[in-house]
Design a binder for these strands. Structure first.
Length: 273
DNA sequence: AGTGCGACCCGAACGC
DNA sequence: TGCGTTCGGGTCGCAC
């Protein structure tokens, strides 16, 4: 499940492997994956090269001479690098072939991921990029920023943390971990948070994401033939997926509830309402 | 406008 | 064993 740290890791590892190789062919095997015009997508990247890979929130931004390829992995998206003659895997939905006969393959068991081709000048005007909130690592992400954003939010703080227009890049796992770090009950209404609590959320988001990126960066499998990314930040999880186990701080039992339809793990004692 | 929820997918885990 | 059911993960679009 690609969280922001894995997206960042994919970005860093792909950068070492695919930059400045001319694209010879683009094949699309699952058309709904392409949100922009399909024929343009298949044609316009041919002859271009990826010259950089950036990231905004959970969006990967592949830069070519004239375009950007925006790629969202959603839950299951992965990139692999294989030789052209290797058989297409069942879940490989988009394949870029380079002039050295290597291929970049987008694989996604659940077909939830999405891609867009946009003109370079349009990046900042593209809806999915424009609406992203502040990154956890952004110095402008402060308690005061959150207080303003949460002011009229009559929704659980857990739900608010998943809102990409407020903080960009947090997923379900990190939202659970950040709230445990901040000692905030996931059901507490966002508009009721104190400045202190917002400060701890900011601190937690920065610290946890930073650590996750660091761990993701050190635990990449050998990727001579593929880029299956499996970060080891799982080892650092304090509440997520730990239902019924003891809280590492107080020994209470970790609970699992649904908040906004999403699995939410928390310690009822450390995170009182 | 703000909020809530089903839909999108399909493999894994679970229940009988 | 084999079947059916539930769940998850991020985001969008529709309904209220």
């Amino acid at each position: 499940m690609p969280e922001i740290a894995e997206v960042e890791t994919v970005r860093n590892t792909l950068k070492k492997r695919i930059l400045n190789k001319q694209i010879k062919e683009v094949q699309v095997f699952y058309e709904p994956m392409i949100e922009s015009d399909l024929e343009t997508f298949k044609k316009n990247f041919v002859g271009e090269s990826f010259i950089d890979i950036k990231r905004r929130g959970k969006w990967l931004i592949f830069e070519t001479e004239h375009f950007y390829l925006l790629s969202h992995l959603r839950m299951e998206g992965k990139y692999f690098i294989k030789d052209k003659n290797e058989e297409k895997g069942r879940h490989e939905h988009v394949i870029f072939t380079f002039n050295d006969d290597t291929t970049l393959r987008y694989s996604d068991t659940r077909k939830f991921g999405r891609m867009n081709l946009i003109l370079k000048d349009d990046l900042e005007n593209t809806e999915c990029i424009k609406k992203q909130g502040l990154e956890p690592g952004d110095k402008d992400l402060t308690a005061d920023y959150l207080l303003v954003k949460f002011k009229n939010k009559h929704i659980p703080i857990k739900t608010a943390l998943l809102d990409q227009t407020i903080i960009s890049g947090l997923g379900n796992i990190y939202a659970n971990e950040v709230l445990f770090y901040a000692r905030v009950n996931p059901l507490k209404s966002a508009c009721m948070l104190t400045k202190r609590e917002c400060e701890r959320i900011v601190e937690g988001a920065k610290e946890i994401i930073e650590e996750a990126i660091r761990m993701g960066g050190t635990t990449i499998r050998s990727y001579t033939s593929s880029l299956g990314v499996t970060g080891r930040f799982q080892q650092n999880l304090k509440v997520h997926k730990r239902e019924g186990e003891k809280c590492l701080v107080c020994g209470n039992i970790i609970q699992n509830i649904k908040v906004g339809g999403r699995s939410t793990y928390f310690c009822p004692k450390c995170q009182k309402k």
